[in-house]
Amino acid sequence: MTKPLLVFNKNGIFCEQANVYLDPWYPVDRAIISHGHADHSRYGHRKYITHHTNVLIIKHRLGPINVTGKAYNETFVINNVKFSLHPAGHIIGSSQIRVEYRGEVWVFTGDYKLEDDGVAVPFEAVKCHSFITECTFGLPAFKWTLQSKVFEDINHWWATNKEDNQTSVLFGYSLGKAQRLLKYLNTDIGKIYTHGAIENMTEVIRPMVDFPETTRITKETTKKDLLGNIVLAPPSAHGSTWIRKMVPYVTASASGWMAFRGARRRRAVDKGFVLSDHCDWQELLTAIEATGAEKIICTHGYTEIFSRYLREQGYDARTESTQFEGESSESETKEEVDKAS
């Protein structure tokens, strides 16, 4: 029996033939990075390879690093192993990583979703033999609504709050979710204010995407400035002293977890909008079918349940434990947010 092309070891997903790691969680020599969220792009690797757009993002997050940018579908060879990046549709600059050696093809999804969100390049299915997939929302209880409908609800919520003389505070992760929200907020209703962590990240992305105007919240911003307008803030700002500036305010969170009433109550937000940058149950099944893969490896999320279901559907499916965290703590670290408050 030959060795598998990709194995899971203590540092991450490893291609021995090329001596390369995919999204490793401990420092290694050479890392191919799927996207810019903190649980996938970590400090301390000697060399980073990632999509051109993500180069800007991880440089902003990680500081000066040795990083090479690649285009989607551009093949690069390391010790006879062919690598290429393909759109994952998760957030701007996110990729699936295709690995080919002697005719055998593996694809690692990183994180992904199928709906075109208008900010990230939409997901493209890549044919492969083995498919390493996330399944953050791998339960039939998760079914997303079209984002056009969700944004209608969000803008309606904002307009209603404004009528009631309240400031709207909307929570979303500073990389990805925040820009997706920003893109579709209706500025006819009012002005968009941003938390520093979100403004910093948006500045990096603004040259590539057409966003509405935003105003950074500073010490000089007054309650009166904010009243009736909308504030985009990272989830960790909830319950902080920073948020007292917004009084009187109404809070909402935009996340896949908002599908559960319990999760909404636990986070003590007034309103939950179900909006995720990950696949729902049906999207996962659709994506897997489109790859034509027979071997499926489920990494983070409801892995045990999802792989059992896949096995019943006739796939050779198993789970591997990783240190990826899905939608629970993605993107920013607490220090990044605190610094920018």
Partner: peptide, 24 residues
């Protein structure tokens, strides 16, 4: 159109039977 065990697992996670049914 899901197996019963998968419904049960979903119920354990959602934590409310009526909500699980409404979701699936």
């Amino acid at each position: 159109n899901i197996p019963l065990w998968l419904f049960e697992e979903s119920y354990h996670i959602v934590g409310d039977l009526a909500e699980t049914i409404a979701l699936v």
